[in-house]
Amino acid sequence: MFGLDTFIATAVSASAPIVATAVGGAFAERARCTNIGMEGMMLMGAFTALSVSVISGSAWLGLLAGIAVGALGGVFLSVAVHLLTCDIIIAGIGFNMMVSGVTLLLIDVFHGESGTWAPTRPPLLPRIDLGAYADTPLIGLFLHGQSVLVLVILAVVVLAWIVESRSRFGRHIRAVGDNLEAVVAAGLNPTVLRTTTLAISGATAGLGGSFLAISALGVFAADMSGGLGFIALAAVIFAGASVVRSALVAVLFGLSVAFATQFQSSGLPVQFVLMTPYVATILGLLLVGVRRRSSGNPPIINPTSPIQH
């Protein structure tokens, strides 16, 4: 039978990668860089984190590499958008396809595996052991036995919130999103600012992907991000690109997974458990639309036009 502790543990570990990814995604979205590529950045983060962990023997190095590669992915997407002048949405989709292919190719070439790479005894990040405090209400329930990455991700949320609300960089990002002319007039380079936000978004997506790969199992599977990057984007949209609210909405999506898992023991078929986050995401976006409509804002119809020249 399922207890409260298992429920909370599931909720925390299901939320963590979405929260991490959503936090950076909020920066990019605020600068009007809708980052569809977060899905691929998570995936490359996961693959790199596991690979570097196995090669170096250190999961911490793996984590750093996963984050760095995610950031590089963000820069790559920015180059596609700013130099190649691709539409950011379509470039994001292309990016995801490419990463999905590259990771598949690499596990085949390096490990002779098609689809899943499960190294023997991979180094994993340590788990939080609260020892005598494991039974402390709240903190014990939420943290004991979780990967230390949960703490790292919490720290990232706080840091991102400070940057967003208290730093000059945070003001500049808001300006890029709201008033481009003013940014240019102030002598700032909007392309550099946008690239930075995409790199930040990539870095936190890499962090979220690393969580998938080196916190619990140490396995990489094809497309193991399973849409979490898109769900994180939905959380960002739901939250109006605010860091803290994005993180909270991401937790809601994680909670939906925990609820569904709980219902599995009372007979909910596993397929319905697995589809819960996707259904929750559609419902969440539906709520955004209804709210927007009832507040009198007309729906914006922005056509996506892929061929521009």
Binding site: G94, M97, M98
Partner: peptide
């Protein structure tokens, strides 16, 4: 491996929609 096809697919999206 077959996956070369998927790499190519992503690259083509960039090249086709870019200038």
């Amino acid at each position: 491996p077959f996956a070369l096809l998927f790499v190519l697919q992503g690259v083509l999206v960039f090249l086709m929609t870019g200038n």
